[in-house]
């Protein structure tokens, strides 16, 4: 892989690594913001994938690529990620106001 010219596959691998990092971050962080960072990583991986798939130059056959759809999708995804992050942060703030902490492990009132 490292010897071939850069193609879609390479982008995909980077995306995959980002994805895994994001997942690990999501699941292991105790900090709310940390979890959100992981989420952002995951979303970034997806966006990267989209952009990768819409590069005609990286495809052997141009017609089979996502084309402009990919780019547009990526833009939308960025916006949505941002919006989601904003809301999530607001919720985290609300949580902090009530619990005086952003440690997610302390949020165990609701269980069973």
């Amino acid at each position: 892989m490292f010897t071939q010219p850069i193609g879609v596959a390479h982008y995909l691998v980077v995306g995959a690594i980002l994805f895994v990092c994001g997942i690990v971050c999501m699941t292991t962080k105790r900090n709310t913001i940390g979890i959100l960072m992981g989420v952002e990583l995951v979303l970034s991986a997806a966006i990267l994938n989209f952009v990768a798939f819409s590069q005609p130059a990286f495809r052997v056959d141009q017609e089979a690529s996502l084309g402009i759809d990919g780019h547009v999708f990526a833009l939308f995804a960025i916006v949505l990620a941002a919006a989601e992050a904003a809301v999530a942060l607001a919720i985290a703030l609300n949580y902090y106001n009530n619990h005086s902490t952003i440690d997610v492990d302390r949020a165990q009132d609701l269980q069973g």
Partner: peptide, 15 residues
């Protein structure tokens, strides 16, 4: 009892 109330566990179960 699986519902422990820990969000991290939830996310782990997601994965």
């Amino acid at each position: 009892a699986t519902q422990t109330g820990m969000i991290r566990q939830y996310l782990v179960f997601l994965v």
